[in-house]
Design a protein around this nucleic acid. Structure first.
Lengths: 233, 233
DNA sequence: CGAACTGTTGAGAGGCTTCAAGCCTAGTGG
DNA sequence: CCACTAGGCTTGAAGCCTCTCAACAGTTCG
């Protein structure tokens, strides 16, 4: 089903609620709103590719994207997801490097593009903006370091359990405790860093053990404590 | 052999050469030099521990440290090394979190401690300082992401080859192409994310294959191209 | 309705880990 | 000065976790 909306609503163009912009003054916000360009992207769209030159960063005002690197034999490694309130592409932009990841839309997304010049302007004019940016990158760095430790030391089973819990924390559940984000087995495998078949087998095990229930791509949490134990947290 | 020096020389207390301080003006440098405290630490010293509260960050003006996280069963995961010109502990400081890593001295080290207040002062007074900081964190984040992909997709053999090449790029070689940094087999294992025994076996293999030569902890590069091939880069 | 993609299951192979035992080296204390 | 000890290093054997390959079922979509 294609969405009937093909241009973002005003609500979807509003970035003033983003934490990183909280301390901007009137003038800075005006400039930001003047410079930004918002668009809607359908599922499967590539926002930028590994190796491409970026002209700005993006604010996610709606939808979900996956950010991944392409490794051996073109196998994806999912680094993180981005959802409403997140910013993407800022890392490579700030380092003035070519993009080292690809961003692909998982659920219909609205993005606001902020040009590099505007980013520089904000860094120069408002130290609190820089400070916020620093905190965002530092948080992401901690998460990356945590993940390195996990992936280096834990079994695939533990990592999958942990990834499920991580999804539970970061994405919506319906009132039956079912994850609303829909991922393929392969995408789960690309988060965990394993083979698709392993994910399938382990999901069955978790289901057998009454930790979760699985209906196609719908994953329902039944025993979170047990899952936490399985993740060895 | 204990070093006969027990307090840092003036040279070791000089942080003006650090990239991150390049754009400071006279007054900011004066403040920085006034606020900093430099000390020498011998091999094995712990600078800060995972979970501790940090009062500032450190500039490494001499020596080498390892930065690691403690994972399952107390197994270390080495996140990175820090050497002359690097700064450490800034990540947790900027996020205002407890330290998420431990820093331990590998080779006698001189560190200059810069209080949190001074860091904040510099962020507020000089946007170019913030910009430099942002670039440093972003670079580290890229490296972390690269490493996640490697560790998730490559074999232990490939990762060890890559780690050796990484050490070669980042640390001194003598004129016989021998790495000057001295690491235990366990430390190598804790970088690669594998068992000590596996490192031992693979080093022997590399030696057999004439890629490197090994004499105790001295590692000498013989065939870098071959090692690069083994790393699947 | 076929094509392409996704999900599932089984079998087999192999990379790595773990455990265990012994060696070597350096530092210590008698 | 030398035996002793502790920690690092090495090697072997056994076995498991995970991957790969292959075949097939189910689903989606043009």
């Amino acid at each position: 089903m294609r969405s009937s909306i093909n241009r973002p609503t005003d609500e979807d163009s509003d970035v003033s609620g983003f934490q990183v912009f909280k301390k901007l003054n009137e003038q800075e916000l005006t400039q930001l709103n003047y410079d930004k360009t918002c668009s809607m992207y359908s599922k499967g769209s590539i926002i930028y590719r590994e190796g491409s030159r970026l002209t700005g960063f993006y604010c996610v005002t709606r939808g979900i994207l996956k950010i991944f690197k392409t490794g051996i034999d073109g196998k994806e490694q999912i680094i993180r997801f981005a959802k409403k309130g997140d910013i993407i592409a800022y890392r490579s932009l700030l380092s003035q490097e070519l993009a080292c990841t690809t961003a692909k839309v998982i659920e219909e997304t609205v993005l606001c593009h902020i040009p590099y010049q505007t980013l520089l302007y904000l860094i120069q004019s408002n130290w609190q903006f820089s400070h916020h940016m620093l905190q965002i990158v530092c948080k992401e760095l901690r998460e990356a370091n945590d993940y390195i430790t996990d992936i280096a030391q834990k079994s695939v089973r533990e990592r999958l359990a942990e990834v499920l819990l991580l999804l539970k924390e970061n994405f919506d559940l319906d009132n039956a405790n079912t994850l609303q984000i829909s991922l393929t087995r392969e995408e789960l495998a690309n988060m965990v860093g394993t083979a698709t078949e392993s994910v399938i087998r382990l999901l069955s095990e978790f289901k057998q053990d009454q930790l979760i229930d699985v209906q196609g791509r719908k994953i329902k949490f039944i025993n979170v404590a047990g899952l936490t134990r399985a993740a060895n947290l």
